[in-house]
Computed example of a mutant assay.
Amino acid sequence: MASSRRNPRSRRAVGATGLLISAVVVATAGIIVSTVPVLVAATVYAVVAGVVAARMLSNELADRRREWSLERAHIVDDNRRASVARSREHIEFANQMGSRIRLRDAQLAELRDVLVTYEIDIAKARERLSEERARVEALEADVDAARSDLESAQFDLARALDSLAESESAELDARAQLLAWEEAATQEERRQHDRSA
């Protein structure tokens, strides 16, 4: 836009300038001669030349304003296109991040389901453990009469303890995985937020 405003002067502007200069010369000549007919002729010439010059400059100014308006319209149109392209990129980015968040939420839900399953297994193992303990206590009350049953109950108790340990270990693993997934998802959201900002 600035380059077009530095164009050389148009023919109309040069012509208008020439007319005004010639009007000054004719008026000066009329003043020097100082006769009525020459002054009248010089005045008429100066007025006509001024009107024609003003009309030429008015047309030139209107053309320049039209050109500048067209340039501004092109700039506005380019800015509009760039804004539309940026809006599309933002929408695509938002859709992509939405699908990632949905995938992460699905993974978290799956890990929560696994955690609930392990908690149920732990509750069952604790029930079995309490049952086996009650059985052991009952068998210990009559040690002399049921020594073989006592050994069997002790074996079942050991199995229940092993099962409980496995279930608790599995629960700890599931909790660690869930925390790792949530931390990774939070960091991913922060990175995406920082990029979009």
Rank of each mutant, 00 (worst) to 15 (best):
D105P: 01
E71M: 08
A62S: 07
V76L: 10
R81E: 04
N59R: 06
I122H: 00
T43V: 10
V40P: 01
E119C: 08
R86Y: 05
T43Y: 04
D63A: 15
R100L: 07
A41F: 04
E92A: 15
D105G: 14
L115T: 05
A41T: 04
L39F: 02
D77I: 12
A54C: 02
L57E: 03
A62C: 06
R64S: 12
D105Q: 15
E60R: 02
I101G: 03
V52L: 10
R65Q: 11
A73Q: 09
R100S: 06
L103H: 10
S83D: 08
D105V: 15
A82H: 07
A49V: 01
V38T: 03
G50H: 00
R135E: 07
Y118D: 03
I31H: 10
V114M: 05
E60K: 01
A73K: 03
E67G: 03
S83C: 10
Q107T: 07
E89D: 14
R55Q: 13
W68P: 00
V47Q: 04
A54R: 05
L61A: 15
R64M: 07
Q107I: 02
I32E: 12
P37M: 02
R133E: 13
L108D: 02
A82T: 07
A27C: 12
L39H: 01
H74K: 11
V116A: 12
M97L: 11
A27G: 12
N95V: 11
V116L: 13
S87G: 15
V33C: 07
A123I: 14
A73G: 09
D121S: 10
V38E: 01
A62Q: 10
P37S: 03
V116H: 08
A62G: 03
A123F: 08
V25Q: 09
A41I: 03
V25I: 14
T43F: 05
